[in-house]
Structures are given as structure tokens and as C-alpha cells.
Amino acid sequence: MKLHKFFSFVLIAGALALFAASCGSDDDDDTVATTAAPTTEAPAPPLRIAIVSPSASNDLAFSQSISDGVNALGDERNIDVAITDGTFVVEEAAAQIRAYADEGYDLVIAHGSQYGGSLEEIAPDYPDTTFAWGTAADTFGLDNVYAYTAAADQGGYVLGTMAGALTNSEVIGVVGPIEVGDAKLYVDGFKAGAEAQNSNANVSVVYIGSFSDVALATETAQAHVGQGADVMTGSAQMVVGAVGVAQNEGVLWFGTQADQRSLAPEIVVASQVYKWEVILQQIVDDMDSGASGGKAFVVTLENGGLEIAYNDAYDLPANVRQLAEDTIAGIIDGSISTS
């Protein structure tokens, strides 16, 4: 009997250990990128950056955008990156944020607006650690917390004008996650752009109430197609299934957060891409000057933190491409409002 209990314990503990190994802190091979800038002097110690993000760092969406952004910093300076992703449970994320601070990371990035409450509690306990969190604009009045967000409505507006120009049925479907943060900004901007370009366009917006429900996102896309949509878009990592519906049905797709052309090269027209490295560079420069927080940063089309990535495999009409470029210029010079 005791032997049985022992084996039970070992098996369950083994399962838990494997889970922890796969979801926990990855300080080794697959998630650490150390890049040294060329120099003739003795190399400076690397800047140690840790990321905690809710979904997989290869999700072609939210988490991948910050992972790519931090790794891009490695082109300019010596960095040491650790990432813990898939922390959709906020308590787990909070524990990991604290663990990274304990381990002495210079910059701990909490990449998810849902982590704000936890960060507000944790940051005061580590005055020598710099934290950044987003997408948000609130630093909680703490001088070791930076906030960052994306003016996702800008890219959304650009893509919306393209959608308005490309639709034949004049029905456009949007698969949204939860009506908050940069997802809402993107959707609002996209709708405004589509309606500004095509006054007859019916832009149907459905928030499914989840960032991760692939099945529901897929059915939402199917429902849009059922209502005649010939152009769709969506935000967050659960849209991968919706892109599949678009591909099967021959419906055009616009992506956001990361370049989604690899999901369906035939129908992805363009994507709004977050280039977080633009504001991360500003944060690191600020840290170099002796500061450690208290500011909020925004990626925009103007500062190059937002880019429109066109899919070369899609035969985009020249006039629509020009329309997009004109819209980008108009947003940057202030002659076009995204609301």
C-alpha cells in the first residue's frame, strides 16, 4: 500500500515538474538571446531584460511582438533576455515578475494590461529594479515603473481604409477579443477607417469575450462570412482559426500586432506591426541617463513604432497601396483623425 502511494506521488510530482519545466522561467537555450555589439574594449556586462507575457512568445500576435522587440534591441547593445510566456494566470505572472526582480534583472517587462494590479504591489518592494508594463499609460506614480502602449487605432484606421476600398460586398467582419486596451483601439480605428473610405460599408464588430478561444473566434469568422463579409480582421492570438476560415472562404484578411502573412499568404493583405523596440530603446536610454521609470511611452506611425507590413504575395491594386500611404501621411501630419 505504501509503495502504491509512493508511486502515485512520484508520478504526479513528475507530471507537475514537467509542467513547471515547460511553463516556468527559461534561462537557457531557447529563450536567451545574448547579442554583443562589436567593440574593441572589454565588453560591458549585458543589460538583463526579463519578459512575462500571457500567451506564447511565438503567437504571431501580442506576445511575439514584445519578444521580437526586445530581441531587436540586441542589434544595438549587449543584452541578456529571459522570457516566461503563457502566464495567462495572473497570480503565476505576479510570482514570476517577483522572481525576476529577486534574480536581479535590470528591466522586468510585464507585458499584459492584466498585470497592472500585481505590478503596482510588487514594484515598491524592488526600488532598484526597473519595471515596464503595457499596454497601459499609468505608472501608478512610481518612479521605477514605465508604461507603454500602442496607438493601434492609427494602423487600424489605415487598414480600415484599405478594407473599405477592397470590399465588393460592402460587408466587413471584425473578430475582437475583449473590448479593452489596444484591441479596442485597433477595432475602433479600423471601423472608422472603413466607414470613412466607404460610406456604404457595414462593419460588423463582434467581441467574443476571450483572448484565447480559437473555436469561438473561428465560428465568429464563419458567422461573418455567412452574413456576406468578403474582408475580415481581428486582434489577439485567438484569430489564427479565423484566418483559416478566411483562407478557406477566399475572404481577405488584415492582421495586427505582428505580421500574419505566414498564416495565409494568399489572403492576408497587410498587417499592422508593433515595433516595441522603438520605445524600448527610449526606456533603455532613459535608464542609461539614471532614471528608472515614471514615464509613459506610445508607439505610433510617426515614431516608427507602428508599421504597415504589406504582403508582397498578395496582388494589392496600386491605387489601394497609394491610399494606404496617403492615409499614413495624413495621420502623421495630423490632417486625418482616426476617431
Partner: peptide, 21 residues
């Protein structure tokens, strides 16, 4: 459940990486 959640993600990262349809 925890084993399945962790192992499926681990295998996906190691063997596939980015989502491919």
C-alpha cells in the same frame, strides 16, 4: 491536466515554433 497543458506547449515550441496552418 497540468502535464498535458505543459507538455503540449513544450512539444509545440520545440517541434513547430510559430503557428502554421
Amino acid at each position: 491536466y497540468l502535464f498535458g497543458l505543459g507538455m503540449s506547449d513544450l512539444l509545440f515550441r520545440q517541434l513547430v515554433g510559430t503557428p502554421k496552418p
